[in-house]
Design a protein around this nucleic acid. Sequence first.
DNA 1: ACAATATTATCAAGA
DNA 2: ATAATATTGT
Length: 720
Amino acid sequence: MTDLLASLNEAQREAVAATPGNQLILAGAGSGKTRVLVHRIAWLLQNTDITPHGIMAVTFTNKAAREMRERIEEVLGFPARGMWVGTFHGLAHRLLKAHFKDAKLPESFQILDSDDQLRLIKKLVKQLNIDDERFPAKDIQWWISAQKDEGLRAAHIEAYDPHTQAQLTVYSAYEEACLRGGFVDFGELLLRAHELLRDNQHLLEHYRQRFQYLLVDEFQDTNTIQYAWLRLLAGETGAVTAVGDDDQSIYGWRGAKIENIQQFEQEFSNVRRTKLEQNYRSTGSILTAANAVIENNTDRLGKELRTDSGPGEPLSLYTAFNEQDEAHFVVERIQQWVDNGHRRDSCAILYRSNAQSRVLEEALIRNGVPYRIYGGQRFYDRLEIKNALAYLRLIIGRNDDTALERVINVPTRGIGGKTVDIVRDFARDHGCSMWEAMQQVIQHKLLTARAGNALISFMHLIDQMDEATDDLTLAEMAEQVIEMSGLKDHHMKEKGEKAQARLENLSELVSAAKVYDYDDEEPTSPLRQFLDDAALDAGEQQADEHSDSVQLMTLHSAKGLEFPLVFMVGVEKNLFPHKMSFDEPGRLAEERRLCYVGITRAMEKLYICYAESRRLHGKESFNGPSNFIKEIPSEVIQEVRLRTEITRPTTVASGYASQEAANDLGLKIGQRVFHQKFGEGVLTGVEGSGGNARVQVNFDYEGSKWLVMQYANLRPMDEF
DNA sequence: ACAATATTATCAAGA
DNA sequence: ATAATATTGT
């Protein structure tokens, strides 16, 4: 019994063995938060009459949910059957599945991901004759999601200005379309789960009685509707344990309310508060930097990380010439690290926005360093995967217009925009699905024979696929569909590396289906479960999870992780803090918290990099170092000076010095050279030497440019 | 209807 | 720079 507590420090023990009741655990980065949560649950199970059945634990990601369940079972020594562990979205989905009737949903409702959502909204905007210049579908999508995050339906909103009115019109139409098609988007899952409990007293009573204990991780990132749902479920009897760190609240932009954790003690009765400030992750220097940065924020609950370990190595600051140089520097240091006997997966490169990953990837590939990217485009968001899934969705239900529109002509089969328009209009006018509309349209011969035949053969194809996949396993189904639909041939005919990757992704989908373990207790079919999970799962990546590779991710997706060696790159003005964060007052503080999250990921060594010049979105910019860098005390950070100074050319290098330098590279001034991108040109200057040599080339078509020799990959043109 | 080509929009984070 | 979209020729 007591050995549960033996490995914990004072504060942790206090949190784990607190008398049951409402609890707020303020857990600093690296303070063993998950450990406390796991032990708390185990302790409750061992020392009170609470059973796994009575516990619900909410995590931030599906991955975290899986890990938590595993760790609890490990500590307990037996499976914690009946315990609900998952994300808000996952749990809401489970609830809606179980009570689809009370939730007023069709039994097999379809989860709409943001891509599907956008397509649908675009369609509606067109149908409603709304000016898509003034009201871009993206903006409307964003607005609708924001309303849902606040728990607002179209009927709740009053529009006084034309702008809101337009958005509201779309929202209403969107709600209706979802209702008809049985679609549920991410926000809807939460909203409807809340309404389900609110409007069904018997269900609410049932679940209130069942879940005596509700534990929520990352509480600082809960939004209004999630909080409302939790509050409702807890009632006056359920005990809530909120675990989080106000300093790590970084999802305000998608509706998270930091107030939820700040006011927790006022909102719930008799809250026992524990602060976990002892850090077991990082060196003293890293913590000093983190504490110093976050101190610039106001309205904090107040918390200071401390450690018993020594200061360790100071942080390093590298000023790169440009983003290429930055990437090159990072790769070089990683190679050193690996040469010193470390694993590649012990280091991470963190950036503010996904667009930054490309240059880093290229540098890693060039140097043959294996890497793995987190987040970015989700696996299940890829075009070819979504197409394959759309076919699978049609097998389940012909009335899934979203899926139908997606693949009706992929690969091309003679059903063009005109034909689809006719079907779509018919469907809208008669309030039926497009599949039904197709049948009608064919019967009434509203089309040319050619188009009609194309439609008929498409419908046959789907029916045939349905039949052919009847008794197959999930993986066989996927394989069959990819084959029969012609997707495989379609991508095989494409050329280039991209097509190759697409084919690989499709076979990856089959493998994913192969290893997918569905819950056979559930009434829903394995295929249904698979599709739902695909929509809900962040695709926290299956393949090569265990292979030793460098980890690349955004600062956001780094939350909750730790690495001995961390690089924060692109720490520049306008990029981080991002320039979009300047208008709204709270946003800058959120950026700072993001910086705090980044710094505290590092265990042993942290590099901070920025580039003097950066090419992003096709434009060159000179941003200068981020203000966050200045907030780090100079005692704990050191500038990296490379052994060879780069003298930057202010004028055209003198002919003589240039020729000297050129000799070292085996080049000649005046020589013709070829460049992959810029074509042919004449070498007009050289400067520096070795790895830092830069050359000036006057290109025939592109004009004169300075290039870093190492990356330019110039090929001498033999004179002829 | 399709494929190839020209034009234009987008460019912060994610369940 | 790239991706989505519009236009044009077959």
